[in-house]
Simulated scan of single mutants.
Amino acid sequence: MARKSERVGRGKCPMCGDRVTFHRTAGGMLNYECDADDCGHNGYAHVGGACEKKWLRSIESAPGPVAAPVPVPPGDPQNPPLGATANARKSATLLG
Results as ranks from 00 to 15, higher is better:
G48L: 12
S5W: 09
M1S: 05
D18H: 11
K53E: 12
E33P: 04
A36T: 10
K4L: 15
P65G: 06
A45W: 02
M1H: 07
G43E: 11
L30N: 01
A50T: 14
L56Y: 03
D37A: 13
A62W: 12
T25S: 11
F22S: 00
R57I: 00
R3T: 10
C16T: 07
T25W: 02
Y32E: 03
A67W: 12
A26L: 03
H46I: 06
E6R: 12
G43R: 06
S58K: 08
H46V: 05
R19S: 10
V47P: 07
R19I: 09
D35L: 14
M29K: 14
W55P: 01
G49V: 07
A67L: 14
G48V: 06
G11D: 00
A50Y: 02
V8W: 06
H41P: 01
A62M: 13
P63C: 00
K4P: 05
D38R: 09
S61I: 03
E6T: 10
V47T: 08
M29C: 03
V8K: 01
R7T: 09
R10Y: 07
G17S: 10
A67C: 05
G28I: 08
H41K: 12
W55M: 12
C51H: 15
G9Q: 01
P14T: 08
K4R: 10
G27L: 11
G49L: 01
H23G: 00
P63W: 04
G17Q: 02
A67E: 15
G49P: 05
R57K: 14
G17D: 04
A26I: 08
E52P: 03
G27R: 12
Y44H: 11
G43W: 02
S58Y: 06
E33R: 14
D35A: 14
G64I: 04
H46C: 13
A26Q: 10
C34V: 02
N42T: 05
K12D: 11
T21V: 13
A50S: 11
L56H: 02
V20D: 00
V47K: 12
G64H: 04
Y32M: 05
Y32S: 00
S61P: 01
K53H: 13
Y44L: 09
C13P: 00
K12A: 15
C51A: 14
P65V: 13
G64P: 09
A45M: 10
P14E: 08
R19Q: 09
A2I: 09
F22V: 02
R7P: 03
H41S: 11
D18S: 15
C16W: 04
R3W: 07
R7S: 10
G11F: 02
D37V: 12
N31Q: 15
H41D: 13
S58L: 04
A50M: 05
M15N: 15
H41E: 15
M29H: 12
D18M: 09
M29R: 15
I59L: 09
I59R: 03
C34R: 07
C13L: 05
I59W: 00
C34Y: 06
G64E: 01
R7W: 00
V20E: 00
K53R: 15
A26W: 06
